[in-house]
């Protein structure tokens, strides 16, 4: 399983709030993702237990364990109540996706309230590890939007 596939699985899991647990087995690698708690905070948290990844497929660099709860991640939070948009218009592509490298000041998303579009910029340079809300859904003040591994 490549790092890219791993990321996509986590992103898929994060976006579907109805999913409690996800288990995938491919080419000898078994991955289990489980929500920390059923009644956790509105922002879904993602945990990938260390032990779940049995063996790296290739001899290349081992992917670092991904965990949205880990302390070395930086969270971009919503500065206002509104609607979360990942792109400028429904027809255009998202500003960023999981795995993208962003700079300080890169636009990550828009929070819209009362026809006011707030472009949310990254406060750090690093890699987008997970996107914690679904496009077009409401967010509360202080909700975690993105987890970024600072560079």
């Amino acid at each position: 399983m490549t790092l890219k596939e791993l990321r996509e699985l986590i992103e898929l899991f994060t976006a579907r709030e109805s999913l409690e647990e996800l288990e995938v087995e491919k080419a000898g690698v078994r991955l289990r993702i489980k929500r920390a708690s059923v009644h956790a905070a509105p922002a879904p948290s993602v945990q990938v237990p260390h032990a779940a990844v049995h063996q790296p497929v290739s001899a290349g660099p081992t992917p670092a364990p991904v965990s949205a709860e880990s302390d070395d991640l930086f969270y971009i939070k919503s500065p206002m109540v509104g609607t979360f948009y990942r792109s400028a218009a429904p027809t255009s592509g998202p500003y960023v996706s999981v795995g993208d490298i962003v700079e300080k000041g890169t636009v990550l998303c828009i929070i819209e309230a009362m026809k006011l579009m707030n472009e949310i910029e990254s406060e750090v340079a690093g890699e987008i590890v997970s996107i914690l809300h679904e496009n077009g859904k409401p967010v509360e003040y202080g909700d975690k939007l993105f987890a970024i591994r600072p560079r």
Binding site: K77, P79, K115, L116, M117, N118, E119, E121, E123
Partner: peptide
């Protein structure tokens, strides 16, 4: 019609 955009720090 009115459409606004802001660029903002967190606070």
């Amino acid at each position: 019609g009115i459409l606004s955009e802001i660029q903002a720090e967190v606070d």
